[in-house]
Structures are given as C-alpha cells and as structure tokens.
Amino acid sequence: MIELNAQTIAFAILSVLVLGGGLGVVTTRNLVHGALWLVLSLLGVAGYFVLLSAPFLAAVQVLVYIGAIAILIVFAVMLTRSMTSLGEVRNRQWWLSAITVILLFLLLAVGIILPVWGRGAPGEVTSLSATVGGAVELGEALVAGDGFVLPFEVASILLTAAMIGAIVVARDEEDEGA
C-alpha cells in the first residue's frame, strides 16, 4: 500500500491544513477568523505545490493569495463592519445544500477511485518522471507563439480591467469633493 515516509507524512499534515482550513471558512461566524482559516487552507495548497515539485507556483500562491487576496478580504470585512455577521450564519436551505454537496462528493469520489480500484489497474501512474519543467520552462511556455502567449496577453488585459473596474466601483463618490 502506501509506505510511511516524509512525503506521506507531509501530505497528511497538508491535507489536514487544507481541509480543516476549508471547513473553518464555511462554518465560522467571525469573518476575520474565516479569512485566517482561508490563509491556512491556501498555505496547505502551497505545500501541495511544493510536494508536486512546482515551487514557482507555491511561491506565487503565497504571494498572490495570502499577500494580496486574503488581505483584501480582511480589509473588506473590516470596511463593511461585517466582522461577526448578525443573525444566522447559514441560510434556510443549508441542509439542502449539505445533502447536495455530500451527494456530489460521493459521485466525484466514485469517479476518482473506481478507475484505480485494485492494484495495477490500467491508467494508474506508478512512477513519477524525474525531469520536471521549472520556472524557466513555464516562462517560455507562457510567451511562446505556439504556447500561451494569447491567453497571457488577455490575462494582463483582464488584470488591468479588473484593477480599473475595482477602483471605479469602490470609489466613494460622496468623498470626491474633498
């Protein structure tokens, strides 16, 4: 089965972080705590990326998600004074959502495990290749003509548009005169 080594232990710890953080996000009443649970979960995902030998993505994950998005969310929580959301945390159909989600997960789990059920099933990857593309290859793929140069440019336009849009939407027009 699965042997116990540093990698498996790390995977177990990271899984606890990812899933525990996720559960914290959807259940906690205090939204600042929720944002910090989110940070924990995202850190776990960054750890996964390291395990999957994608250190560049791990660093970007920490930088973008924790350094920017989580901070943005905390700011929004404080600016909207919704730190502890008054009243119910969940809406009225929460049990319906829970049942749907559990059914969905069972479906997904069957879809994931069934193909690899039993040893040596076809399609199961038994050994990882040692040569892995790094940040250089990723960079070249992003700007290569037959790679992702068009999505890359579109992404930069999207970011610019999002930045301008966010500023325009969030600007307080009553304060403009000052």
Binding site: V18, V25, S82, V89, Q93, A98, L104
Partner: peptide
Amino acid sequence: LLFCIGIYGVLARRNAVA
C-alpha cells in the same frame, strides 16, 4: 473534498464575503 466544501459555502452562507 475541498471543492465540495467550497460549493457548500457558496450555497449555504449568507454573508457575501464568506
């Protein structure tokens, strides 16, 4: 599992930030 937790949050939470 994480995806399902996320869906649950989207469907069941009332606070937009959550």
